[in-house]
Computed example of a mutant assay.
Amino acid sequence: MSVVFEQELPNEEATLALAKRFAESIKEPVVVYLEGELGAGKTAFCRGVIQAMGHEGAVKSPTYTLVEPYQLSGWRIHHFDLYRLADPEELEYMGIRDYFAEDTLNFIEWPEKGAGWLPDADIEIALSYYEQGRKIIINALTNTGTTIVQSL
């Protein structure tokens, strides 16, 4: 069922434009895993989606807090950064199950650090350095993910 979208992103503006299109295609709860090296654009993509969905303030990286929540019209968005997670079991102590509900969008950077404790992804996004910019590969893993990726 895998549907894949690939695009070169020459600059941050291109990343934010794609993030806006991604946000516009979200109609139901989704779990998104983001993979890529430090600085590859994972947080920039999340910021673009969150702001496109109506958040007017800053969107900061949750590197030290593990999760940044955003309450928007009809949605609770959680942006996770598990880079500093020492043990996946720490997710249980922070009540990880409470973050995944029918009104939530969840963006998870470094999902491999939470293996065994996270729900399966609807979409995997891989960002990498490419020439002077970045390259993004968006892979749909469920029907929900397929609907989003096909709309891009």
Rank of each mutant, 00 (worst) to 15 (best):
E37D: 09
R47C: 06
N143T: 05
E89M: 14
Y33Q: 08
A40V: 10
L91P: 02
A14K: 10
P69V: 08
F5Q: 05
G54W: 09
I125M: 15
G36H: 02
E35G: 11
P62E: 02
E35R: 11
A58K: 11
I108N: 01
W110N: 06
D81K: 04
P119S: 14
T63N: 08
K135V: 10
L118V: 03
E92G: 15
E35D: 14
G114N: 04
Y99R: 00
Y64L: 12
G116T: 12
T144Y: 01
N143R: 12
E56P: 02
G54P: 04
K20W: 07
S2I: 15
S151M: 14
H79W: 09
Q7E: 11
A121S: 10
L16S: 05
I96W: 06
L82P: 05
S2L: 12
P69N: 12
I125E: 11
I50G: 07
Q7N: 13
G57N: 02
M53E: 08
R76Q: 09
A52R: 06
G145T: 02
P69F: 04
H79M: 02
A101H: 06
N106C: 12
E56G: 00
T15F: 07
S151W: 14
A19T: 03
G36V: 03
V49M: 03
R47A: 11
L152N: 00
K60D: 05
V49S: 03
P69H: 11
Y129N: 04
K20C: 01
I77L: 06
N143P: 11
A17M: 06
L82F: 07
V67E: 11
P29R: 14
L91K: 08
G74M: 12
T65A: 07
M1Q: 15
P119K: 10
G48F: 05
H78W: 04
P62F: 00
L38H: 01
Q71I: 07
D98L: 11
E68W: 00
E89N: 14
V31W: 03
M94N: 13
M94L: 15
H55F: 11
T15C: 13
I123D: 13
S25A: 09
T63F: 06
G95Y: 03
A23I: 08
I77H: 03
Y93T: 12
V49H: 01
V31L: 11
D87W: 13
L82C: 02
G145K: 03
Q71P: 01
M53Q: 02
G57T: 06
